[in-house]
């Protein structure tokens, strides 16, 4: 029995069949972290910068509206 099964077996609240599938999936995800990161690419720095800029622009839009229109 793998350490994963030792750690989780009977503790997930799932049926045995589903639990075995869960163990298989967790093992795949833990073993292939580098592969997974290539497949499920995280957001890059430019994405975060763009998100921050959009957030700031939204707040600025409200402030400018007050100055210009009210």
């Amino acid at each position: 029995m793998s350490s994963l099964e030792l750690e989780l077996s009977g503790k997930t609240g799932m049926d045995q069949e589903v639990e075995q599938e869960l163990f298989r999936r967790i093992a795949i995800l833990e073993e292939n972290t580098a592969e997974r990161e290539k497949e499920i690419e995280p957001l890059k720095k430019c994405d975060w910068i763009l998100a921050a800029v959009l957030f700031a622009c939204s707040i600025l839009l409200v402030i400018l509206s007050n100055i210009i229109f009210y």
Partner: peptide
Amino acid sequence: LRHIYNMSPAS
């Protein structure tokens, strides 16, 4: 993921 799926006090 192990902690997420462990519903026991060991999680």
